[in-house]
C-alpha cells in the first residue's frame, strides 16, 4: 500500500509542479508585456527607417530591433547547419561503433556539454587573436560566432542521437540483419528515421540554446550597432546581446522598455523556430 501512497503523492506533486511552471511562465510573460508596452509600437523593428527599404538592405536601421532580429536568426540557422549534421554523425559513431578513441570521444562530448559558454567564447576569441599571426584577415564575425555556438550546442544532437540509437529494440537490428542490409543502410534508412523524435528533441534544445546565448557571441562577433550583416564575415547584432547591453547600460525607462520588448521578440522568434522544427519533423513522418 505504500506504493499506492507514493503514487498519490507523485500525482499531486506533478500537478503542483505543472501549475507552478504555468504560473511562473505566465508571470514572466505578463511582466515582460507590461514593461515592454511603452516600446511596442510601429517603430519597434525599424525605428524611423522605411521598413521596406530597410528589409532589402537599402537603408540602415538605427532605432529598431530589425538588425538584431535578423542577426539572431542567421546566427541560429548557421550554427544549426553546422552542429546538426556533425552532432548526428558523432552520435551515430558513438552508438554504432566501438573503439578506445570513440569511448574517449563520448567522454569528451560530456565534457564539451559542461564547457561554460564564456569559456567557449574566450577560447574562440583567443584562437582568432592567435590566428591573425598567420592569417591577417581573420576577425571576429558571424561565422566565428556561429562556429563557437555550434560547438556549444554540439552535445545536444550528439547525445540525443546516441541515446536514441542505443535504445532501439534489438528486434529491429535483427530484422535489418535478416534482410541483408549493410550497416550503413540500416543506420541511414531504418535506425535514424526510427530515432526522429529523440533527435528532434535534441535539435529543439540546441536551437533554443543557440538563440539565447550571450556569453559566446559577446566575445566572438556580436556588436551593439552595425546593421544587417552582408556576409558571414561581418559582425552582427543579436537580440540577447542587445538585452544584455541595455540591462547594463540603460539611461532611461524608454530604453529599458525596448530591452523588454526585445525579450518578447526573442520569445516569439523561438516559438516560431520551434513550430517550424515541429512541422519539419511532422513532414518526415509518412
Amino acid at each position: 500500500m505504500t506504493r499506492r501512497l507514493i503514487e498519490r503523492a507523485v500525482i499531486a506533486a506533478s500537478w503542483l509542479a505543472a501549475l507552478l511552471l504555468f504560473a511562473l511562465f505566465a508571470t514572466m510573460l505578463a511582466f515582460l508585456a507590461v514593461h515592454a508596452a511603452p516600446a511596442l509600437d510601429g517603430d519597434l523593428l525599424f525605428g524611423d527607417a522605411d521598413p521596406w527599404r530597410a528589409m532589402i538592405g537599402e537603408e540602415m536601421v538605427w532605432d529598431g530591433l530589425w538588425p538584431a532580429l535578423v542577426g539572431s536568426t542567421l546566427l541560429t540557422l548557421v550554427a544549426l547547419a553546422i552542429a546538426l549534421p556533425l552532432g548526428v554523425a558523432a552520435g551515430i559513431a558513438q552508438a554504432e561503433f566501438d573503439s578506445p578513441a570513440l569511448r574517449a570521444s563520448r567522454a569528451m562530448t560530456d565534457l564539451l556539454s559542461g564547457m561554460p559558454s564564456i569559456v567557449l567564447g574566450l577560447s574562440g576569441f583567443m584562437l582568432i587573436v592567435l590566428l591573425r599571426g598567420v592569417w591577417p584577415d581573420a576577425n571576429v564575425s558571424l561565422l566565428l560566432a556561429a562556429c563557437c555556438i555550434a560547438l556549444l550546442i554540439l552535445p545536444y544532437p550528439t547525445v540525443a542521437t546516441r541515446q536514441a540509437l542505443l535504445r532501439l529494440p534489438a528486434t529491429l537490428r535483427l530484422a535489418c540483419d535478416a534482410l541483408g542490409m549493410s550497416r550503413m543502410q540500416a543506420i541511414f534508412h531504418v535506425y535514424l528515421p526510427e530515432c526522429r523524435q529523440g533527435i528532434g528533441a535534441g535539435a529543439v534544445l540546441a536551437c533554443g540554446r543557440a538563440l539565447e546565448d550571450v556569453a559566446v557571441i559577446l566575445l566572438t562577433g556580436a556588436v551593439a550597432s552595425f546593421g544587417v550583416p552582408r556576409s558571414v564575415f561581418d559582425p552582427f547584432e543579436a537580440l540577447p546581446f542587445f538585452i544584455m547591453v541595455t540591462a547594463s547600460e540603460y539611461r532611461d525607462e524608454q530604453q529599458l522598455a525596448r530591452a523588454f520588448a526585445a525579450a518578447l521578440l526573442l520569445l516569439g522568434l523561438s516559438a516560431l523556430l520551434f513550430t517550424l522544427a515541429r512541422r519539419l519533423q511532422g513532414k518526415s513522418v509518412r
Binding site: I128, L219, P235
Partner: peptide, 21 residues
C-alpha cells in the same frame, strides 16, 4: 563609412585593438 560598436569589457577592448581585430 560604417562604424561598428561592441562591448565585452575594457580588457577585451585592449586585446582586440592590440591584435588588430
Amino acid at each position: 563609412v560604417r562604424i561598428s560598436v561592441s562591448g565585452g569589457g575594457s580588457g577585451v577592448g585592449i586585446q582586440k585593438v592590440g591584435a588588430g581585430l
